[in-house]
């Protein structure tokens, strides 16, 4: 009588654990950066330039992951860089999600003219090359945190709109929606109370994916020097600087790159993991 799936207590899952742990560490480091970072991330000391990480010959105690060519502490710069990365991820991801998902739900649920307008807008939007779009926007607005966040929202809301619209369409065709209407629910109420909970897993998965994308976009823009000013360290900026001296000091490039990779991977794994947990049928 009971479905067999209900008996399988799904363990929390390694990926949910690992990605959650990494992102929590990162978040803590970002919030408490001034206290956690062993050094001032901007302090230069040319006598301490290109120190290797702690396990190598010539390492200086206290500079765990070495220093760059200007003698700035790599670990401290990465910790401070996490602030920018997570800030962009959180704000840009959430805004993109809210705007894109709302439009997607409206188009998919009400269909008719609202769908025609929104779908047409998405099509037109997606015809623009996104990177060009971002560079244009930042050229007009000037570099800075706000420009980056805006660029990400402006480029990526269509991803949410398309996916959520499709999901809403398929949910809307189900009999439970008809039943709710026969039972006297208004259309708006049906959308909020019946359909929304069922597309939430998809929204969550997309949101975390988007956060990962935001981190990458920020890094890319920093890499091409279009991000925020040079006095706050960013992973992308570190990667750009590290690239020029990779043969003398690989660590300046490799540590931020690896952190970036791990963070983006964690976001996408967190999304997948949460989707499974949220999904009532898989739960």
């Amino acid at each position: 009588m009971r479905d067999a799936r209900a008996h399988i207590r799904r363990p929390l899952g390694a990926r949910l654990w690992l990605s959650g742990t990494w992102l929590s560490i990162l978040a803590l480091a970002a919030v408490f950066a001034p206290w956690v970072a062993p050094h001032d991330p901007l302090a230069q000391d040319l006598f301490l330039g290109r120190l290797p990480p702690f396990w190598m010959d010539g390492a200086e105690p206290g500079y765990w992951l070495g220093t760059d060519s200007l003698g700035r502490d790599v670990l401290s710069r990465m910790i401070h860089g996490a602030r920018v990365a997570l800030m962009v991820a959180l704000v840009a991801g959430t805004l993109t999600c809210i705007i894109g998902a709302s439009l997607g739900v409206l188009a998919g649920f009400y269909r008719g003219w609202s769908d025609r307008i929104i779908s047409r807008l998405v099509d037109i939007w997606m015809a623009f090359p996104p990177v060009l779009f971002a560079i244009l926007l930042i050229a007009v607005m000037g570099p800075g945190l706000v420009s980056i966040i805006l660029a990400i929202v402006v480029i990526d809301w269509t991803r949410f709109a398309r996916v959520i619209r499709a999901e809403t369409l398929s949910q809307g065709a189900m009999d439970y929606v008809a039943s709710a209407q026969i039972a006297g629910r208004t259309r708006f109420n049906t959308m909020i109370a019946e359909i929304l909970p069922n597309i939430l897993p998809t929204v969550v998965a997309l949101l975390t994916l988007e956060m990962g994308i935001a981190v990458i976009v920020e890094a890319i823009l920093s890499f091409v020097n279009l991000s925020i000013s040079t006095d706050s360290p960013t992973w992308g900026g570190m990667i750009a600087e590290g690239r020029t001296s990779v043969h003398q000091a690989w660590w300046v490039l490799v540590f931020p790159l690896f952190t970036l990779f791990l963070t983006v991977l964690s976001f996408s794994q967190l999304g997948e993991g949460l989707k499974d947990r949220f999904d009532p049928v898989l739960r």
Binding site: D175, A178, A180, I182, P280
Partner: peptide, 19 residues
């Protein structure tokens, strides 16, 4: 309609809200 009529649907899987 809500006061006077009701539906027994074809597919009991999609007729109940899964969440």
């Amino acid at each position: 309609i809500g006061e006077t009529a009701a539906l027994i649907p074809q597919d009991p899987l999609t007729a109940l809200n899964p969440s």
